[in-house]
Design a protein around this nucleic acid. Structure first.
Ligand code: SF4
Ligand code: SF4
Lengths: 145, 145
DNA sequence: TGAATGGGCACTAAATAGATGCTATATTCT
DNA sequence: AGAATATAGCATCTATTTAGTGCCCATTCA
């Protein structure tokens, strides 16, 4: 339906939160306290992001997650790709095979569209996303030091 | 999942086919003969496009569907909007309300992304799509006269 | 009249997405 | 050591959306 999943949205919210917060480690509990999203689901999402090394996790009291790289070097495409597999507008647009492919007359065109949509996500960074949030006055990637 | 539905793809294929074929009326039967897609589903799709006056329908022998406007004046956004409701990358991006909206920190940013994705679809015409298909050598919108 | 062709509705099936439970493991603090 | 805090892993269940189909009616034309 050309729509981002909740997983992506939750992930982006959490990452934006981390980018803004400035603190070193942020726990799921903290994030859930601010944003009103299902705790367990957010945990799943962050775990995936941790596996993909988008964030670094530390357990135990005072632990939580932390971005592994500056927010302005993290594209939405990357995040969405991790959280929902790929950003392909059509099945054939990310290498997957489609049984209609042989007789499909619009494949080439659709792929061009897919490519353009992809670049939109590629060009949008987490920093840009966070900069537009509530606390998004100061440059996020400057603060995160 | 940021992916077009089959409805959209089938619709686009059919419209591209009509744009290329040059003949005045094209029946579901004809389209299905070329493209290997479920007949009944395509019929549903074309009916919706007919309701939206993207195509004009004529019943009876020799009847079928015909584009109501030149292929280069029909954007993918328009078609997708008709076939799947809207092209919003996020729920809130098309006016719909989202219960997370009050506490959502990324709404503004996401809307910007949504807007950009929308313009990709807005700027891509059926003619462009059809021009890249199998028979897409000559300019589609010139032929359709 | 009969064949071709779209129109309308309702329904089933499959795929995706959303959400949660439970237990294990690591870390810190007392 | 033991309690408290946090993430890790896995399985599962439910809800929503998408895909696909059946059946009959209306229109047009030869
Ligand atoms: S564009 Fe054609 S080939 Fe690519 S996924 Fe859609 S149908 Fe399959
Ligand atoms: S962006 Fe925020 S408000 Fe908009 S749909 Fe996603 S969650 Fe709801």
């Amino acid at each position: 339906m050309l729509r981002l999943t909740k997983r992506s949205e939750y992930g982006l919210m959490a990452l934006a939160f981390m980018a803004q917060s400035g603190q070193s480690y942020t726990s799921v509990r903290e994030i859930v306290a601010k944003l009103r999203i299902p705790r367990r689901l957010l945990a799943e999402v962050l775990k995936d992001l941790s596996r993909a090394e988008i964030v670094e996790a530390v357990r135990g009291p005072g632990g939580g997650y932390r971005l592994t790289s500056p927010a302005d070097q993290l594209s939405l495409a990357r995040i969405v790709e991790i959280l929902e597999g790929s950003v392909a507008v059509a099945k054939c647009a990310d290498g997957s095979s489609c049984d209609l492919s042989p007789s499909c007359t619009i494949q080439e065109g659709i792929n061009l569209v897919a490519q353009r949509v992809k670049s939109v996500l590629d060009d949008f960074t987490l920093a840009q996303l966070a900069d537009r949030g509530p606390q998004g006055s100061q440059s996020v990637h400057e603060v995160a030091v």
